[in-house]
Computed example of a mutant assay.
Amino acid sequence: MERRNWDIERVLFSLPAIVTGSALNFHIVTRKGGVMLITLNWQLGVLGVPDESEFVQDVLTRIRAPLTDFVAVAL
């Protein structure tokens, strides 16, 4: 039996918001030498802010900056 090598180059996944779970659900995937992907899900109406999309974008921006700095130092 011939064995073939293969490699996963990119993964994207997301899960639905969990009604009985936390208000924000983070899902993170990465691979050695690859990119890190973070998705953020929430149940509409539970965040208690006027603009949920703007709030979530702000959260992701605040997470991205320290991770970017960390990667720059680690390399």
Rank of each mutant, 00 (worst) to 15 (best):
M1F: 10
R4G: 07
R4C: 11
N5K: 12
W6T: 13
W6M: 10
I8L: 07
I8A: 06
I8G: 03
V11F: 03
V11T: 00
L12P: 02
L12F: 09
F13C: 10
F13M: 12
S14H: 15
P16D: 13
P16M: 04
A17K: 01
A17W: 00
A17R: 00
I18M: 08
V19M: 05
V19H: 08
V19D: 07
T20Q: 11
G21P: 14
S22C: 13
L24M: 00
L24Y: 04
N25H: 08
N25F: 04
N25T: 08
F26M: 02
F26K: 02
H27K: 05
I28Q: 11
I28M: 11
V29K: 00
R31I: 01
R31K: 08
K32F: 10
K32L: 08
G33W: 00
G33N: 02
G33Q: 00
G33R: 00
M36T: 15
L37M: 07
L37S: 03
I38D: 05
I38K: 03
I38T: 10
T39M: 03
N41W: 02
N41H: 08
N41L: 02
W42L: 05
W42G: 11
W42T: 15
L44N: 14
V46G: 01
V46I: 13
L47H: 06
V49N: 11
V49G: 07
V49L: 00
P50R: 05
D51A: 10
E52M: 00
S53F: 04
S53Y: 02
E54Q: 14
E54C: 07
E54D: 13
F55E: 07
V56R: 01
Q57K: 06
L60Y: 04
L60G: 12
T61L: 06
R64I: 02
R64C: 05
A65K: 03
A65Y: 06
L67V: 14
T68A: 06
T68I: 01
D69A: 15
F70K: 04
A72L: 07
V73S: 06
V73H: 09
A74F: 11
A74W: 10
L75K: 09
L75T: 06
